[in-house]
Design a protein around this nucleic acid. Structure first.
Lengths: 134, 134
DNA sequence: GGTAAATCGGACTTAATTGGTCGTACATCG
DNA sequence: CGATGTACGACCAATTAAGTCCGATTTACC
């Protein structure tokens, strides 16, 4: 199936929400969880990953929460996906990492054509920025 | 994860192989299974789906096998994916079927922006034809 | 007609991934 | 200190993907 995981969906909703509240106060995980009906613990983990990837900054303690780390115009959707899933969105196993990643390898006849499709998809995710979805 | 399933990978490899042998003889599932190291039973089912979708024609019996049903220039990659997976490649649950398909619905703030990405991806899979990967 | 080679198709099992939960530790403000 | 927040790893549950099995059917050829 070619589908974003729920984590990514949650992450996009969350970071969009944070971006929409930039300038004002910082946003807590609970706030987002309540507003969008997202399981709190799961959302927390997603936010942690976004924080680790320096897309958002976390503020611990009593008036803590999250705020945007960068200019939303510089944050691409593909970057967000990569931060949450740990890998870039790649449609086939062939195209993943090193050259030995394709099991069939020499028998894999679809690798090269899929590279084109891959490039298109990368562009689809890579040209849209956070600023465009706020 | 945004990734094609193995079934789709197998299907693409298989239909490409069949297309590459068009004109000559028909190709058996075992032949493909052997050549590319694909589990026979699984491949057989994938081929059945392609056959049901009228992308390939099956010939039963002793000298049976599969051959291409259509002009490869008219067979789009998205059609092949759809035939195998049963659904078109859709990146988010929001975008799937009816209007009630998005659980969060009114809270889902990313639906409309993702539609653009979706359109790009549809185009990526929809413009490339079987003829281009042979 | 019998047999072997092929597809057909459903039921089933297993493996992998995803989704979600829990518990505890740490930070910070008042 | 205590309330309110994040940090993080371990864990369990649910779903989906991947693969297997087995009997049925079709058909060419001897």
């Amino acid at each position: 199936m070619v589908r974003l995981s729920k984590k990514v969906e949650y992450g996009l909703i969350a970071i969009r929400h944070i971006a929409a509240h930039a300038g004002n106060d910082i946003v807590t995980a609970k706030e987002i969880s309540d507003k969008y009906g997202i399981p709190y613990d799961l959302l927390a983990k997603v936010l942690q990953r976004l924080s680790k990837a320096n897309l958002i900054v976390s503020h611990q303690g009593v008036r803590g929460g999250y705020s945007l780390a960068l200019d939303p115009r510089t944050v691409h959707i593909s970057t967000i996906i990569h931060a949450i899933e740990g890998t870039a969105p790649v449609i086939a196993r062939c195209l993943a990492d090193g050259p030995a990643s394709c099991e069939v390898f020499d028998a894999c006849t679809i690798k090269s054509p899929l590279t084109k499709v891959q490039a298109n998809i990368e562009q689809a995710f890579g040209t849209m920025t956070l600023a465009e979805i706020v």
